[in-house]
């Protein structure tokens, strides 16, 4: 247990070990630790960002779904409205058409009636003439008016 030159040897050995540690051991390991720390921090930040983005996307999706629903209900209500309109329109069309058909039928009937009346008139005239001629013929000359009478008969 004497103080001797060992103390110098120990100082040198210690200094060498410290220098070695300072140069070849500490920096690479520390650098790796720092890098890993940074990596983990980045990873955590990315995860956080991802979660945030997902939240946003969910929100956006909800919004889109909401809008779509609104649009769909709007379309449905428009279609209903349009349907009602079409029904109403076709109802009124049908009414107008019916009236038109009715009117034309009436007109035709009237026309027909008129024509029949006219015909009837002429026939009545003919018949009256025939009747009159028959009455006249018997008194006048049956034989002379046979032809005329035959014609009349055939016409009736």
């Amino acid at each position: 247990m004497n103080i001797n030159a060992t103390i110098i040897g120990q100082i040198i050995a210690f200094a060498v070990f410290v220098a070695f540690c300072m140069k070849y051991v500490w920096p690479p390991i520390m650098q790796a630790l720092e890098e890993r720390k940074k990596k983990i921090a980045d990873g955590l930040a990315a995860a956080e960002r991802g979660r945030h983005e997902q939240e946003l996307a969910e929100k956006r999706a909800q919004q889109v779904i909401h809008e779509a629903k609104e649009q769909a209900s709007e379309i449905v209500s428009q279609a209903q409205k349009r349907g009602n309109e079409i029904v109403d329109e076709s109802k009124s069309n049908a009414r107008v058409e019916g009236e038109r058909i009715l009117n034309s039928a009436k007109a035709e009937i009237e026309q027909e009636a008129n024509r029949a009346r006219d015909e009837l008139k002429t026939q009545v005239g003919g018949i009256a003439l025939a009747g009159a001629s028959k009455i006249l013929g018997r008194e006048i000359d049956e034989k002379a008016h046979t032809d005329l009478l035959d014609e009349l008969v055939s016409r009736i």
Binding site: M1, N4, T6, I7, Q10, I11
Partner: peptide, 11 residues
Amino acid sequence: DPNATLGMAIF
């Protein structure tokens, strides 16, 4: 050995 510990302390 006090040489070792004192050597470190001196450094």
